[in-house]
C-alpha cells in the first residue's frame, strides 16, 4: 500500500465520518442545546485559552492533513456549541471561541464540540428530560466503520511522520476539552493542593473506552489521606467513563488509542 493511497483513504474516511457526525450531531445537539446554554458552570474555559494559542496558525502549518478544506463548509453548524461554557466567564470566552474555532477547522475535529453539550447535565438541576435525551444521541451518533477499513488506515498511518507539534497540541486540546467538563475534582479536601493522579486511557476507534482507565501514578498521597487519595483517583476515572465516547480525529487514532491523563487540580484551588 502506498502512502498516497493511504492518505487518500484516510481523507475519504474523514469525509464520511464528518458527514456522519454532522448529521448525527445536528440531530442530536441542535434541539437540546438551546435550554442548556445558560446554567453551566465550567472552569476549563480559561485553561483552553492558554493552551490553545500555539495551534492558531495551524491552518497553514498542516499541509499534510488534507481535510481542512473539505471540512470547512461543514463547520458553520458547530461553532455555537463551544460557546456553551462561556457564560460564567464572559470576559475570557470570546478569545476562546475564536481559538477553538481555529483548531476545529484545522483538525476538522467537529467532534471536539461534543464536550460542552455533555457538561450541561451537571449544571441544569432537575432537568431530567434533557438529561435523558442527552445520553442517547452519543451512542447513536457514533459512526460505524468496518474492521478491515480500520486496519487498513491504521496500518498506513504509523508510517507517516511523527505527530507534529501542532497535531499534538490540537489532539491534546480536543481531549482536554472533552474530559475537563466531566471531571468533578474534589476541591476543598485538605490535601487537594498537593495531589495529582495519572491514568492510562485506552480507547477504541469509536472513542469508547477499550479498558477501564488504568492507574499509573499519584502524587501527594500519604498514609494520612488514603481515603481522599482513592476518592481523588475515582473522580478522574469517572470523568473518563462519563465522557466516553470521546470524539477525536480518526486519522490520529494511533496517537489517541492509548494515552495518559494527568489530573492536576492545583490551579483550581
Amino acid at each position: 500500500m502506498t502512502e498516497g493511497r493511504a492518505l487518500g483513504i484516510a481523507a475519504g474516511l474523514h469525509l464520511l465520518l464528518l458527514v456522519a457526525l454532522s448529521l448525527g450531531l445536528a440531530g442530536a445537539i441542535a434541539p437540546e442545546s438551546e435550554p442548556d446554554v445558560t446554567p453551566i458552570e465550567f472552569l476549563d474555559v480559561s485553561d483552553v485559552a492558554t493552551v490553545t494559542t500555539p495551534p492558531k496558525p495551524s491552518m497553514e502549518a498542516a499541509p499534510q492533513d488534507p481535510e481542512p478544506p473539505a471540512a470547512a463548509p461543514e463547520m458553520p453548524e458547530a461553532p455555537p456549541a463551544p460557546q456553551v461554557p462561556s457564560p460564567p466567564t464572559p470576559a475570557k470566552a470570546a478569545p476562546d471561541v475564536a481559538a477553538q474555532d481555529a483548531i476545529a477547522e484545522a483538525v476538522a475535529a467537529a467532534p471536539a464540540r461534543q464536550p460542552p453539550s455533555k457538561a450541561k447535565p451537571a449544571a441544569t438541576a432537575g432537568q431530567n428530560a434533557a438529561l435523558v435525551d442527552r445520553s442517547k444521541p452519543k451512542a447513536a451518533a457514533k459512526p460505524r466503520e468496518t474492521e478491515d477499513f480500520e486496519k487498513t488506515v491504521e496500518d498506513a498511518i504509523p508510517k507517516q511522520a511523527k505527530l507534529s507539534a501542532i497535531q499534538a497540541a490540537t489532539l491534546e486540546q480536543a481531549i482536554r476539552a472533552q474530559i475537563a467538563p466531566c471531571w468533578n475534582p474534589p476541591i476543598g479536601g485538605a490535601d487537594v493542593a498537593e495531589m495529582t493522579a495519572v491514568l492510562r486511557i485506552r480507547l477504541n476507534r469509536d472513542g469508547t473506552v477499550a479498558a477501564p482507565p488504568e492507574f499509573v501514578s499519584q502524587s501527594g498521597a500519604t498514609a494520612g489521606n488514603q481515603a481522599y487519595a482513592r476518592a481523588f483517583v475515582e473522580t478522574a476515572r469517572r470523568a473518563v467513563l462519563r465522557c466516553a465516547p470521546l470524539q477525536l480525529p480518526a486519522d490520529l487514532f494511533p496517537y489517541w488509542r492509548e494515552f495518559e491523563l494527568n489530573f492536576d487540580p492545583r490551579l483550581m484551588t
Binding site: 458552570e41 485553561d47 482536554r176 492510562r200 494515552f259 495518559e260 483550581m268
Partner: peptide, 19 residues
C-alpha cells in the same frame, strides 16, 4: 504504535465545579 502513542500525556488542570 502503542509506545509512540503512550508518550502523549495530557494535563487536565480544570474541571467542572457543578454538583
Amino acid at each position: 504504535a502503542v509506545p509512540a502513542a503512550a508518550q502523549l500525556r495530557i494535563d487536565i488542570t480544570s474541571g467542572s465545579q457543578a454538583a
